[in-house]
Amino acid sequence: MRDSIAHSHGIPVILNPAPARALSDELLSQVTYLTPNETEAGILAGIAVNSLETAKQAAQILLQKGVQHVIVTLGSKGALIVNHEGVQHIPGFPVHAVDTVAAGDSFNGALAQQLTSGKSLKEAVSFANAVGALTVGKAGAIPSLPWLAEVEQFLKQEAARLE
Rank of each mutant, 00 (worst) to 15 (best):
Q114A: 15
H89A: 12
L111V: 03
I81G: 02
Q114N: 10
E163S: 15
K138Q: 13
V125E: 05
N83C: 08
I11R: 14
I11F: 12
K77T: 00
V70P: 03
G92W: 08
G66V: 00
Q30S: 06
I90L: 11
A124E: 08
Q114L: 09
A159P: 02
K77L: 04
I11T: 14
Q60P: 07
I14C: 14
Q113L: 14
S117G: 12
L44R: 14
G75K: 05
A160I: 07
L23Q: 09
Q153F: 13
G78S: 11
L28V: 00
A139M: 15
G75C: 00
I90A: 05
V82N: 01
L111W: 07
V82A: 00
L23M: 09
E38R: 12
T73E: 06
S29G: 04
G92H: 09
L115K: 11
V49T: 07
L134A: 09
G132N: 09
M1E: 04
P91F: 10
Q57K: 12
S29A: 04
V72M: 13
E150Y: 05
E26M: 07
Q60D: 05
A128W: 04
N50D: 15
Q64I: 02
P36Q: 07
A48Q: 13
K56R: 15
R161C: 03
G104Y: 10
I71F: 06
A159H: 08
L162R: 14
Q68I: 00
T100P: 13
L23Y: 11
R21A: 13
D105G: 10
L15W: 08
L34E: 07
Q113K: 15
Q60N: 09
L162Q: 13
A79K: 06
Q30K: 14
L34M: 05
G92D: 03
S106G: 04
L111H: 08
E163I: 05
I5L: 08
L44A: 11
L162P: 07
V49D: 03
E163M: 11
